[in-house]
Design a protein around this nucleic acid. Structure first.
Length: 120
DNA sequence: CTGTTGACTGCTG
DNA sequence: TCAGCAGCCAACA
């Protein structure tokens, strides 16, 4: 996907929660295979000051989306997979991400920062 | 309207 | 290092 398309996609100001959720979903869809990001990083990317919990809620709601959202690529700021019954962990393993005791191995290396990767 | 609850985070000792 | 905790804020009862 080109930077031009990214501008078209993200050059709008979310006006309500649905817009914010959509913005979050759009960014999550951009996380490459084999990379992960955090709830807080996504919150910053969409302009929420302390909205990490909202991002968590968005992840929960994402199951209703028509276009799939790779929520397994979103973990907490410490690199741990939270509230999972093995499903998201399995998805990550399929993508080549290593996990020990629910924690992403080499979290820093596979971390994908939306603010650095997306041109607004 | 009030209180509680989280797929969260950053400080602190 | 790391457990504990305050701050966070949209949903929900």
């Amino acid at each position: 996907m080109s930077k031009f398309n990214l501008k078209i996609r993200f050059n709008y100001m979310p006006i309500d929660n649905k817009e914010i959720y959509q913005a979050i979903f759009d960014i999550v869809r951009l996380i490459p295979r084999g990379r992960v990001t955090s709830y807080g990083a996504l919150a910053k990317a969409v302009g929420l000051k302390s909205g990490a919990r909202m991002v968590g809620r968005a992840m929960f709601l994402s199951s209703n989306e028509a276009e799939p959202v790779p929520v397994h690529r979103v973990v907490n700021s410490s690199g741990y997979i939270v509230n999972d019954n093995g499903h998201r962990e399995r998805e990550l393993l399929l993508e080549g991400i290593k996990i020990r005791n629910d924690k992403i191995v080499d979290f820093k290396k596979v971390f994908w920062d939306p603010l650095k990767e997306i041109e607004l």
